[in-house]
Design a protein around this nucleic acid. Sequence first.
DNA 1: TCAAAAGTGTTAAATGTACACCCATGG
DNA 2: CCATGGGTGTACATTTAACACTTTTGA
Lengths: 236, 236
Amino acid sequence: MPPYDPSAFPPFAVTVDLVVLTVRHHALCALAIRRGEPPYQGRWALPGGFVRVDEDLGDAAARELAEETGLRAQNGAHLEQLATYGDPHRDPRMRVVSVAHLVLAPDLPAPRAGGDARSARWAPVTELLHDGAALAFDHARILADGVERARSKIEYSSLATAFCPPEFTVGELRRVYEAVWGVALDPRNFHRKVTGTPGFLVPTGGTTTRQGGRPAQLFRAGGAALLNPPMLRPEV
Amino acid sequence: MPPYDPSAFPPFAVTVDLVVLTVRHHALCALAIRRGEPPYQGRWALPGGFVRVDEDLGDAAARELAEETGLRAQNGAHLEQLATYGDPHRDPRMRVVSVAHLVLAPDLPAPRAGGDARSARWAPVTELLHDGAALAFDHARILADGVERARSKIEYSSLATAFCPPEFTVGELRRVYEAVWGVALDPRNFHRKVTGTPGFLVPTGGTTTRQGGRPAQLFRAGGAALLNPPMLRPEV
DNA sequence: TCAAAAGTGTTAAATGTACACCCATGG
DNA sequence: CCATGGGTGTACATTTAACACTTTTGA
């Protein structure tokens, strides 16, 4: 790396953007914020903000997440770095490099953006990625990358449990997979598969009938991060 | 995203670092550059440099790759973004955010760094990640992340062919998998598997005896990016 | 009593694994 | 001739996929 010559390499602004995903009403949804000022005033965008001088990237993402949603990354939600976007013209005001992060959260929280519920909402990703939605900046691309990451990662990791409350049933977990992948899964084979994968689920002993029908066992996420064997996504 | 207030958010330097991997002598190797100046003078580091004002991140990575190795990303080599590292103290001089990229290249090229071969070399990753090696900055962590990405990605994508010359044999491809994963694979089952995976390999019609023994068919990489079924890495 | 969701059993097909065996070359 | 790597056949174990069937609740 050559010595730093500020005149040859003007500085950049560095931001974090968040793809916050959850499953609501059997649909994969993302958190969107309505922009109150130019550019892209009035358009929907991903939550995000500037990284502070003394702050690591992951810390900045966690801080923005707490500020915009009240969610704590500790508390069930999963936070990981997604990718970095640095097209010279992605922001018309200046040169901004944005480190996008992916958050997977349970359905519980109601969005709040500075206390103004009208300017933040959960929207189905199909809607946000539709041609007419026209998210601000390159946020459609970032959202699409985040959704793709989530779709592939629940296949070989235990991350699908991050979409569930602390205690959940096999059926609830199955509906997460169905919503994220957009397919129907055989409930009987799914049950055998997840309960047979070591470290994925641990029974809490309790049961619930909140989904109707016969009482279902309650589970919480086991320690395993990687699933072996993986969940198989039905082919396209 | 709030308005940009430069006094509140001092600027960052943005760099790209490169994890350039190849397979030489049955070992997974990475390109290392010896630092000629402080900090970490005399220590080995990953190649990299500052992103220019009007340059996208991928373009900066491709440019650095060409400058430091003569490799063109077009020509067989594979280039993808890896991850971004932004710890406030990762560079003692100033706040630097580095967007690491991963390059997979065939064995052919001899390293050259500004024409000085003594200051650039291919080193086995086991050696570079050994405690005594002490790569500069956080480059050991970046290299480890790149190796892990390569190990998992050749499992479900056709990327292993990026380590091979334009035409290669099944045995040569197998030795790539063995070097990257550090395991021995059954040559017979491997042959059936790769030739049976649609879109992975297309025969060129030629044969070669460069590995000795019976002449082997030559193949080139097929169009498929994702392997279905995936190659299975033998369990640990 | 019925609908709904949970959970178990069973079977056929597909896939993975181990290894015996033959093939075609260079030395 | 023989060592070396290339390639095919085959048998067995494991996994997947489809679906019949039983269980336990609330309405």
